[in-house]
Simulated scan of single mutants.
Amino acid sequence: MKSMEEQIRITTYEEAAEILAKVGVLPLAPLIPEHPSISGITKAENWHTGTELDPWAWRARFPGEGLAGYGKFIKKKAVLVTKEWFPVFVAASGSTLALEERYNNGLSSREALTLLKIIRANQGIDTRSLRAEAEMKAKEKKSLFDNAVTELQGSLDIVISGVKERHNAEGEKNGWNSTSFETASHWLKESGLSTYPGSREEAIQWLHTRMDGVWSPAAIAWINKALSW
Score class of each variant (00 low, 15 high):
4 M>Y: 08
4 M>A: 15
5 E>A: 14
9 R>N: 05
10 I>F: 03
12 T>R: 15
12 T>C: 03
14 E>S: 11
18 E>Y: 02
18 E>A: 14
20 L>A: 07
25 V>W: 07
26 L>Y: 04
28 L>K: 10
30 P>M: 09
32 I>F: 06
32 I>E: 03
34 E>M: 06
34 E>F: 03
36 P>H: 00
37 S>Q: 10
38 I>C: 11
39 S>K: 11
40 G>F: 01
41 I>G: 09
42 T>W: 07
42 T>K: 04
42 T>A: 06
43 K>F: 11
50 G>P: 04
50 G>N: 08
50 G>T: 12
51 T>G: 14
52 E>G: 10
53 L>I: 10
54 D>P: 00
57 A>S: 08
58 W>M: 02
60 A>H: 04
63 P>A: 06
64 G>V: 00
64 G>K: 07
68 A>L: 03
68 A>M: 11
72 K>A: 14
76 K>H: 12
77 K>F: 07
79 V>A: 11
80 L>C: 05
81 V>H: 04
84 E>P: 00
89 F>A: 12
92 A>K: 12
96 T>R: 05
96 T>K: 05
97 L>R: 13
97 L>F: 04
99 L>F: 04
100 E>V: 03
101 E>G: 07
101 E>F: 02
101 E>V: 14
103 Y>K: 05
103 Y>D: 01
104 N>E: 15
111 E>I: 10
113 L>V: 10
117 K>M: 06
124 G>R: 03
128 R>A: 13
128 R>N: 13
130 L>I: 04
131 R>I: 05
133 E>A: 14
135 E>F: 14
138 A>G: 03
139 K>V: 13
141 K>I: 01
141 K>C: 07
144 L>D: 14
146 D>S: 11
146 D>Q: 13
148 A>W: 01
148 A>E: 07
151 E>C: 00
152 L>C: 02
152 L>E: 03
155 S>A: 02
155 S>D: 10
158 I>Q: 01
159 V>T: 09
162 G>V: 10
166 R>H: 05
169 A>R: 12
169 A>F: 05
171 G>F: 06
173 K>M: 03
173 K>Q: 13
174 N>T: 13
178 S>W: 08
181 F>W: 13
191 S>I: 02
192 G>S: 07
198 G>C: 01
199 S>N: 01
202 E>N: 11
203 A>R: 04
203 A>G: 08
205 Q>G: 00
206 W>R: 06
206 W>K: 09
206 W>G: 07
207 L>F: 09
208 H>F: 11
208 H>K: 15
209 T>Y: 13
210 R>A: 11
211 M>Y: 10
211 M>G: 10
212 D>L: 10
214 V>G: 05
215 W>A: 07
216 S>F: 07
217 P>Q: 02
218 A>N: 14
220 I>P: 00
221 A>H: 09
222 W>E: 01
225 K>C: 05
229 W>F: 15
